[in-house]
Design a protein around this nucleic acid. Structure first.
Lengths: 227, 227
DNA sequence: ATACAGCCTCACGCCGCGTGAGGGTCAACA
DNA sequence: TGTTGACCCTCACGCGGCGTGAGGCTGTAT
């Protein structure tokens, strides 16, 4: 709370001092403090200052409606931010694993992960919607975010020529199975769809980071590790 | 993506057209499209445009560091928004129950709910920190948010003179017990602290919405409902 | 030839203040 | 009695990320 802020609130007419001294100093009363606290609350909620007068001096019904609107808005804002958080988390995980180092790859992954849920048919979309109800959107996104790092890790092992029966690879295969199970929840149609969708997904990604897309060789490798 | 946006990106030097026609029309190439997509990704992540040139043209290490920084920032942004969401949800719940209708009360509740975790001793703070580890911050906030509506509902019944043994009231008492259990997780020190803290909390709230603070009468009423 | 869509540059406006410049006011201390 | 600071005042410009004109040129369809 700077002095300038108080002046500004006066300028736009949402908070006036109770009076002025002879020399022009602003004197704020206790009610101004209360009003200021409310302004801060509304501001936190994302209400623009210009809209506050109505809410501060209006009736309860108006405020209630506005709060309901804000709740919706907050929900969407949070879910976009959470999406970003998972995407950024996936990229950082890959970086730490030494999977990627080039900016082009990082950007590609950031974009891939936003597109995982794109390109679905209507039927699949419905199946996912049901699943979302059951498991919670949060969990769905967490699971989705684990694909690219896992695929990259498997491919790294494959290219190093590690035996598929090696304990490390078998651990990755275990994670793979777990992810597939989480993802499809026993629904074979979704299970088939997932990997295929990744294969079709985004030409930029295929150029920039082909190792994030499972191909036949990788699928064969992981199958052998699962035995 | 408006035309003006592209012009602006040119002005600040983060995205230039590949060439111009004789008549001055901008011609963007495929690489400009790629760069633009990256700009959008970074912008979603909250990177200011001025900082993008370094990230787009710099080395992977710089980008990786920035991503790590952004992850932290995102986490705090999300948690403040979630806090707001719970507060607003609590108020709306109360409004729908018919518990409150005056703007003053709504603001008071919005502020109370932000202050529930304030005013703790160091020791209590440690206990909460442990608990937070165990249950997850999200759950803690969800539980905290349920107090004010519950208290208000109980008080409403009490003031209508409902018998504490009435099924409705006993249901509220059951919720009360469950909340206390969640809150204190078997730690009697925290259990004692919670209600007392609410009683001491905020003089504005006591004036504006005394029914949200449990007093001796209400505590007695709920005890009788628990028999 | 004419209409109309789309491009160009230049310039001001928006929000929520931050940050000066240039000057007055007030309590404390020499 | 001055003088020193720490505060206050008004006025005015600046930021970021564009939106929104005004006034004019270009390109394509009819």
């Amino acid at each position: 709370m700077s002095v300038r802020t108080l002046h500004y609130y006066g300028e736009i007419g949402i908070l006036e001092p109770r009076e002025r001294t002879e020399s022009g100093y602003r004197l704020y009363g206790a009610e101004a403090v209360l009003r200021l606290q409310r302004i801060r609350v509304l501001q936190e909620l994302g209400v623009p200052l210009a809209a506050m007068q109505r809410l501060l001096d209006g009736e309860g019904s108006g405020l209630a409606e506005e709060l309901a609107r804000l709740r919706k808005e907050l929900a969407t804002r949070i879910s976009t931010l959470q999406d970003l958080q998972l995407r950024i988390g996936g990229v950082l995980q890959l970086i730490e694993q030494g999977g990627i180092a080039e900016p082009a790859q990082m950007f590609a992954i950031l974009r891939l992960m936003s597109g995982l849920s794109a390109g679905l048919s209507d039927e699949e979309r419905e199946l996912y919607a049901e699943r979302r109800e059951a498991v919670g959107e949060q969990r769905i996104r967490e699971v989705e975010a684990q694909w690219p790092p896992l695929i990259a890790a498997v491919r790294a092992q494959m290219q190093q020529g590690t035996d598929p029966q090696d304990p490390q690879v078998r651990e990755l295969a275990r994670q793979w199975r777990a992810l597939v199970a989480e993802f499809s929840a026993g629904n074979p149609q979704l299970e088939r769809g997932t990997v295929q969708r990744m294969r079709e997904h985004g030409s930029e990604l295929q150029q920039q980071l082909p190792e994030a897309i499972p191909d036949a060789e990788l699928m064969d490798y992981i199958r052998r590790a699962m035995d």
